[in-house]
Design a protein around this nucleic acid. Structure first.
Length: 645
RNA sequence: GGCGAUGUAGCUCAGAUGGUUAGAGCAUACGGCUCAUAUCCGUAGUGUCCGGGGUUCAAUUCCCUGCAUCGCCA
C-alpha cells in the first residue's frame, strides 16, 4: 500500500504560528502512522509564494518579492525539524518545475475549452484580493479591512467550474470519506445545492506581475488557486513522474476549515477537467483559540511554534495538540491546559509507569529481560494481553480516521490498566518471597512487553519519547518497527536493558508569573523607579550573606528522600549540610570536591537531618525538557573556609 | 434573512434505535501502598442531561417551539 499525504502550501505573508504547526504535526503523525502500518509513504508540505499580498509585504520591507519569499519560506522550512516533522518533499510555487507544470495544465484545460475569456466588473477589495458583493459591505466598506473597495471593470479568464457541479455532487455522495469529518461534507453539499459560478483564474499584469503568466495570454498571470492547488501534482512530477504513477491514487489532503471550498470544490473540478482522478480523502480541522479568544495579530496572542517547543518540548506539544483537539472542531490552547496534560498524562501516567517498571527490572531482575515460564501466566496477564489487543484495534481505526484524540485515549486506557496491574500484583511483595520468583518474572516480563508495545504505538505521535523508550528497552531496529511487531512476546530473555531515564519532567504551573510577563510585554510601559528597585539589593544586604568555600569530606544518601544527600563538609569547621542534588550526583562522586556554601543560613531540619547551611548549584533546563544541575565551585583549589564575595 | 450543528458533573467531553442507580478524564476530599518523577491504587460525591409544550405506560433521548452559542450561505 502507498500513502500520499499533504499539508496545504502555506502563504508566506507571515511567519508560522500554532495553526500551521497543528496542520503539519497532524500530517506528519498520519504519515508516520501509515509507515507504521507498513505503507510506502510520501509526505509533502511547502509554501505558496505568489500574489499581491506578497508584493505588498516585500515593498514594505524594502526587498524584492524574490528575496522576501526566500526568507519566509526558509523560516517555514526551518520550523519543521524542531517539531519533529519530517516531510519527504518541500515544494515552493516559485519552483521552476512547478511554474512549468501550472502552465502546461492551463494550456491543456484552455485547449479543452474549459477556460474562457470574459468581462467582469465589480467592487474590488485589495486586502481580500477579490471582488465583493454589495451585500457584503458594511457602511460601504469591506468588513474585514475597513476600506472602501474600488469599482473595477476588467477582463479575465474563467474556469468552467459549473460544468462539473453535478459530477462533483455525485462523487461526494458516492464517496462518504471524500470529505471528513461529516460536518464539512454536509457544508459542501449544502453549498453545492445552489448553482456554482465559474472561477476567475487570472489577474491582468497591469495590476499584478508576481505570478505565473498564462501560457495563452501574456497580459495575464494566474490567480492564486490554480497556481496553488496544482502543487499537489507538481510535487509528484505530474504528468510523467514515477512518483505520480505510484502515489497520486492514494492522495490525502489535510487542511484547516478556512480553505475548505478551494479544496472541496475548485480542486476536484479542476482535476476532473484535467482527466486526473480525484484525491482520495480530504481531512478538515478546526481552529485553535488561544486563552479563549481567536488567535490574531492585532490582539497580540499569536503563538509561535518555536516558543512552545522551547517551553514544553516537542513531544509534549505534539501529544497535547493531538490529544486535546477533537479533529474537526475548534479547541482552546492555554499554558495551563498543556501543563495539565504534561503532568497528568505524560509525567504521572506514562512517564512514571515507564520509570517504575524499569526500576523494578533493575532491582528484581538484574536489569535484564527475565526468562519466564508460560505456565505461570494467570488470568491477570491474559486480560492485559487481551486489553492490549483491543487497544491496537481501536488505535488503528481511530488513527486512520484522524480521530487522534480517541486513538490516544485508547492507548492511555492501557497505561492506566498497567498501573493497576502493578499495584494488584505488587512485585515488591513477590520479590520478598523466593517461591514467587517465577511469578515475579512473569509480572516483570509482562510490563516490559507492554512498554514495548506502547513505544511502538506512540512513535507516530511522540517520535523522540518513543525512541527514548526503545533505547531503554534495548529494542533493535526500532526505526523500522511496524504494527505487526506489536505481537506479544517480542522481548528476548536475557537481553540487557539500559538504565532508566525520566521520560517527561513535571512542570510547575506558572500562571501568575506568566500573566505578569504577558502583561508587561503587552503594555511595554516604562518601569517606574519603584519597580526598578524591586528585586535589587544593596551592597550591605549582600554582605549579610556569608559565602565560603568548603571541601566535601563525606556524602551519603538519606533514606526515603529521593532528592536529598547528607554532606559532611570542612569549612573549615565540620558541618552537616543537606543538599537536594541526589538526582544529579552519586554520594561516592562527591568527597574531595570543593563547593560554595551559604555559611550563615539558619539551620533547618530536612528528613530528620539538621542542615547547617546550603550548597550552591546551577540548574538549567535542557531542550528535551529534563533538567541539568551542576555544583558551583571555585576555579582553583582554595583553603576550606575561604570567604567568597 | 435561509440552512445546519451544538447545549449533559466545577472544567473538557462520552452516551443511550425512548425503559430501573446517566458515564470518562481532569480538578476537589478522604483512605491505602512504597516499585516509581510528591508519583500510583481505591473510595466519595454533587447533575431540573438549556427553558417550555407535545406524543407515550415511560422522554435527557422522538416531535414542535423558545433561548443561547457556533458554522455555512445570502
Amino acid at each position: 500500500m502507498s500513502t500520499y499525504v499533504t499539508t496545504p502550501i502555506y502563504y508566506v505573508n507571515a511567519l508560522p504560528h500554532l495553526g500551521h504547526a497543528y496542520t503539519t504535526i497532524v500530517t506528519d503523525t498520519y504519515s508516520r502512522f501509515r509507515k507504521l502500518c507498513g505503507d510506502d509513504v510520501r509526505f509533502q508540505t511547502g509554501t505558496d509564494e505568489h500574489g499581491e499580498k506578497i508584493v505588498e509585504a516585500a515593498v514594505k520591507e524594502g526587498v524584492s518579492p524574490r528575496e522576501y519569499v526566500d526568507r519566509i519560506s526558509t523560516a517555514f522550512q526551518g520550523t519543521w525539524p524542531s517539531l519533529s516533522v519530517e516531510p519527504d518533499y518541500l515544494i515552493r510555487t516559485t519552483d521552476a518545475d512547478h511554474m512549468q507544470t501550472v502552465q502546461d495544465i492551463l494550456q491543456m484545460v484552455y485547449d479543452k475549452g474549459d477556460i474562457y475569456f470574459s468581462e467582469y466588473s465589480g467592487l474590488y477589495c485589495k486586502g481580500c484580493e477579490r471582488f465583493l458583493t454589495e451585500k457584503e459591505l458594511v457602511d460601504g466598506k469591506c468588513p474585514d479591512h475597513q476600506v472602501a473597495p474600488e469599482e473595477i471593470s476588467e477582463q479575465n479568464y474563467f474556469f468552467r467550474m459549473s460544468k462539473y457541479q453535478d459530477w462533483l455532487i455525485n462523487h461526494i455522495k458516492e464517496n462518504p470519506e471524500f470529505i471528513t469529518p461529516e460536518r464539512y461534507r454536509n457544508e459542501v453539499l449544502s453549498f453545492l445545492s445552489e448553482p456554482l459560478e465559474d472561477l476567475c483564474i487570472s489577474r491582468p499584469t497591469s495590476r499584478l506581475t508576481w505570478g505565473i503568466p498564462l501560457p495563452f495570454d501574456e497580459n495575464f498571470v494566474t490567480y492564486v488557486w490554480f497556481d496553488a492547488l496544482i502543487n499537489y501534482l507538481t510535487g509528484l512530477g505530474y504528468p510523467n513522474g514515477e512518483l505520480y504513477a505510484k502515489y497520486w491514487q492514494d492522495a490525502e489532503h489535510v487542511i484547516a476549515k478556512d480553505i475548505l471550498k478551494p479544496h472541496a470544490i475548485y480542486w476536484p473540478t479542476m482535476l476532473r477537467s484535467m482527466d486526473v482522478p480525484a484525491y482520495k480523502r480530504l481531512h478538515v480541522h478546526g481552529y485553535w483559540n488561544v486563552d479563549e479568544t481567536k488567535m490574531s495579530k492585532s490582539i497580540g496572542n499569536v503563538v509561535r511554534p518555536k516558543d512552545l517547543v522551547e517551553a514544553y518540548g516537542v513531544d509534549t506539544l505534539r501529544y497535547f495538540v493531538l490529544r486535546e483537539m477533537s479533529f474537526g472542531l475548534d479547541s482552546s490552547f492555554s499554558a495551563d491546559s498543556i501543563i495539565a496534560r504534561q503532568n497528568s498524562d505524560l509525567a504521572n501516567d506514562l512517564g512514571n509507569l515507564f520509570s517504575r517498571s524499569l526500576t523494578m527490572i533493575d532491582k528484581y531482575a538484574g536489569q535484564k529481560v527475565p526468562q519466564i515460564e508460560q505456565s505461570l501466566e494467570e488470568e491477570a496477564e491474559q486480560e492485559l494481553q487481551q486489553a492490549i489487543q483491543d487497544m491496537l484495534v481501536a488505535y488503528e481505526k481511530h488513527m486512520n480516521s484522524f480521530n487522534f484524540h480517541k486513538g490516544l485515549q485508547s492507548v492511555w486506557e492501557v497505561i492506566s490498566l498497567l498501573n493497576k496491574y502493578i499495584v494488584t500484583n505488587a512485585p515488591w511483595d513477590l520479590a520478598k518471597d523466593d517461591s514467587q520468583q517465577g511469578r515475579l518474572n512473569v509480572v516483570l516480563y509482562t510490563l516490559l512487553e507492554a512498554l514495548r508495545v506502547l513505544a511502538i504505538v506512540l512513535k507516530p505521535v511522540m517520535p523522540s519519547a518513543a525512541d527514548k523508550m526503545a533505547a531503554a528497552l534495548s529494542l533493535e531496529n526500532f526505526d523500522q518497527a511496524t504494527l505487526t511487531d506489536c505481537t506479544w512476546g517480542g522481548m528476548t530473555a536475557g537481553q540487557a536493558l539500559a538504565a532508566p531515564e525520566p521520560l517527561f519532567p513535571r512542570l510547575e504551573k506558572k500562571k501568575k508569573e506568566q500573566k505578569q510577563q504577558a502583561q508587561s510585554k503587552a503594555k511595554k510601559k516604562p518601569a517606574t523607579k519603584a519597580e526598578q528597585l524591586d528585586g535589587v539589593i544593596t551592597f550591605e544586604q549582600f554582605g549579610q550573606v556569608e559565602l565560603r568555600v568548603a571541601t566535601v569530606i563525606a556524602a551519603e544518601s538519606i533514606p526515603k528522600a529521593d532528592k536529598l544527600l547528607k554532606l559532611t563538609v570542612e569549612a573549615p569547621e565540620k558541618r552537616t549540610i543537606v543538599a537536594g542534588i541526589a538526582e544529579y550526583y552519586a554520594p561516592e562522586d562527591l568527597p574531595g570536591r570543593q563547593v560554595i556554601i551559604v555559611a550563615n543560613l539558619k539551620p533547618a531540619k530536612l528528613r530528620g537531618v539538621v542542615s547547617e547551611g546550603m550548597v550552591l548549584a546551577a540548574k538549567q533546563k535542557l531542550e528535551d525538557g529534563t533538567e541539568q544541575l551542576t555544583l558551583a565551585t571555585v576555579a582553583e583549589k582554595m583553603a576550606p573556609g575561604s570567604r567568597v564575595a
